[in-house]
Design a protein around this nucleic acid. Structure first.
Length: 122
DNA sequence: CCCTGATTCGC
DNA sequence: GCGAATCAGG
């Protein structure tokens, strides 16, 4: 398909005339896709059918947060194995002054928390 | 289901 | 740059 000035002029004329892509396609002798494609390339805007194509799948944001990225109030409790992919940190709000959130702080600080009974036995 | 236009994709 | 294919809405 060669878009000479005639074709382009006719396309613009018919397009501006209010004809649909199918009509223009039949008129000029091209498929409606060609019409709409050329119209789009020419910068012509369609007045009818304001269909907006939904955003395509595109989310290139594989931002991996390291421990240093976590703010002072972000729980640094490790989730998973650091050597395993998908390892991350808790990230929940921490108790002020503590590196972990309340939930993980309770786990973190129970280490060697021997009760009096243990000492009693020893 | 068939129409519309819009965007994406391969040539 | 071209249009078919695909997508999305009426």
């Amino acid at each position: 398909m060669v878009w000479n000035d005639e074709k382009i002029d006719r396309l613009k004329k018919l397009w501006a005339d209010g004809l649909t892509t199918g009509e223009i396609g039949k008129e000029i002798g091209v498929s409606k896709n060609a019409v709409v494609g050329k119209a789009h390339r020419l910068g012509l805007k369609g007045r009818p059918s304001p269909i907006k194509r939904t955003q395509k799948e595109a989310k290139p944001e594989p931002k991996i947060r390291s421990v240093v990225d976590l703010s002072a109030h972000t729980c640094r409790w490790p989730i998973g194995d650091p050597r395993e992919p998908g390892f991350h940190f808790c990230g929940k709000p921490t108790t002020p002054g503590k590196p972990y959130c309340a939930e993980h702080a309770s786990i973190a600080y129970v280490s060697s928390n021997r009760s009096s009974k243990d000492e009693d036995a020893a």
